[in-house]
Amino acid sequence: MSWLEKRGRTVDEAVAAALEELALPEDAVEIEVLAEGQKGLLGRWGVREAHVRVRPRRRKVEAAVAFVRDVTRTMGLDAQVEGREVADGIWVEIRGRDLGRLIGRRGRTLDALQYLVNLVVARRHEDRRPVIVDVEGYRRRRRDALEDLAVRMALRARRLGRAVSLGPMAAAERRVIHLALQDHPEVSTHSEGEEPLRRVIITPRPGNGAAVAERRRHDSPIR
């Protein structure tokens, strides 16, 4: 979006002229003051005009949606793209038919696209919230599946009375497991190993009436 430059006797006047032309309220724009005005002596000597530039503020969500729309269109996909803001993230939802290849194996293509979107919009926005890109609810379903897995494996750890190791996961997926079990009274979680083979270990807490953890070697990977 290009800047609109305006001059006036004071900064306020210059800004007001710009807002008038853009037909926008002040909180909907970015303003840069290029030169403060100077009244001069008796309004005659040393008078300098104020000089500002103004442009509509594009929210991060709008920038992210615009970019994803361009990408899906250029890929020749028939897709609708919508943005949604939540407290700790900006969701970009892609809907349409036949979008499997946009997800890729285990979400790999979707992760790549999400990485690029974040790079593209982070450069121009102070908003530090991450952009999460989803296709037809894939991430939500994946999160639900991981939460189910977390609960099942917690039960297993308690029943066996020893630590249970999950398969290798990406950081965002491990986080889902940790969060799902953070308030669980009978197990605790931590991660072990090096990326990309880092995995979550679920350990029963001792002395809660269930089998007492005997901290043997980890169970073989499950999943």
Binding site: M75, R101, T109, A112, Y115, L116, L119
Partner: peptide, 17 residues
């Protein structure tokens, strides 16, 4: 090479067919 790898992944998905 993380950025160019992400570009490759997206482009290959587009070219898939």
């Amino acid at each position: 090479g993380r950025v160019v790898n992400a570009i490759r992944t997206v482009v290959r998905a587009a070219a898939g067919r």
